[in-house]
Nucleic acid binder design. Sequence first.
DNA 1: GCCAGAAACGGAGTCAGCCTCCTCTTTAAC
DNA 2: GTTAAAGAGGAGGCTGACTCCGTTTCTGGC
Lengths: 183, 183
Amino acid sequence: MSELHRATRADARRNHEQLLAAANQVFTEHGADASLGQIAKRAGVGIGTLYRHFPTRDSLLVATLQGSLLALVDYARALLDAKSPGEALKVWLKAYIKHATTYRGLAVCLPPLTNSASICELVKNAGTALLERAQAAGEARADIDFDDVAVMSAGVAFATQEVKEAARRKRVLALFLDSLDLR
Amino acid sequence: MSELHRATRADARRNHEQLLAAANQVFTEHGADASLGQIAKRAGVGIGTLYRHFPTRDSLLVATLQGSLLALVDYARALLDAKSPGEALKVWLKAYIKHATTYRGLAVCLPPLTNSASICELVKNAGTALLERAQAAGEARADIDFDDVAVMSAGVAFATQEVKEAARRKRVLALFLDSLDLR
DNA sequence: GCCAGAAACGGAGTCAGCCTCCTCTTTAAC
DNA sequence: GTTAAAGAGGAGGCTGACTCCGTTTCTGGC
């Protein structure tokens, strides 16, 4: 009597891939609130199949972002060796905020998602390490934790996304970074 | 031949009032994305009537917020006489951000609305006056304009609204205010 | 190779909300 | 009282979320 589960079926794996690819395309074209039916269609799959693989929109979103989130974690690890801890944090936060605008409207979905997806825990840990290193070096404001920074970053990503003028976006971002007393 | 338009009908005025009252209730209970059908029902009015009075959700939102927005403008005018321009700006911005959380989810709707509603022009002018006064007194960072502040405020309002811990909300708000170099 | 049944598929169906359109009713003006 | 303009209202069309279940497709065991 085998307690082992069967291996995942080949068609299931294929559909999973196709759904991810289609979701990435459609989210990119139409934003994070794109129609799930359209994603299923693009993947050449029934809507029921989409829901079996990804029970919620958020789970599909997280799955499509998985790769870039891991890249963000790696980036943070690499930056732990940078000369200036303050500068390292600054650079990474810019990437972090940019990531939150991968799809139009993504920033609005992220906050709830941050608490549920386990991958986000990794990102949080990575960011915390960078922040604490900067704080230890006296290159970042000491009276805040990474959750504070994450909340503000979400706000900046959200507020910034609709702003047309690049100069203003830059200034607002700078405003935020300055508030951390970096360097 | 009268070029004059007829006076607004009494039933129309009544329905307008009832819609505003109902909208305020329902938005308060269910957030800024509440069902418009429910608002019409609460007002004892057909859905078509709601749409004649308020062609878009945003127009209804602005209408329900009209009073508090005007109050915000008055508050700013009053604060122009305060001793400390920096402190005045700070106090007003807190009220401004708080206003953006009048209904759950309001912060998400506000940015597009800010550019279309004429009442928001008044608020912007009021805020600009406070900011420039603080800048002239050397009590606020000089390299930004009110739009920058407004964008950041929208971000703070958005990011802050889902945060449970009051202490963190307070810290994030302080982070933002500090970035303006007030006082 | 073939077969049994587990796993997965798919889309019809249900529901909710948005918004429009058109007929019927109410009202102000005379 | 009459009239015509203004307004009311809800049926209906549309889109998208999500479920449910009959049908199809794999795969491991033989």
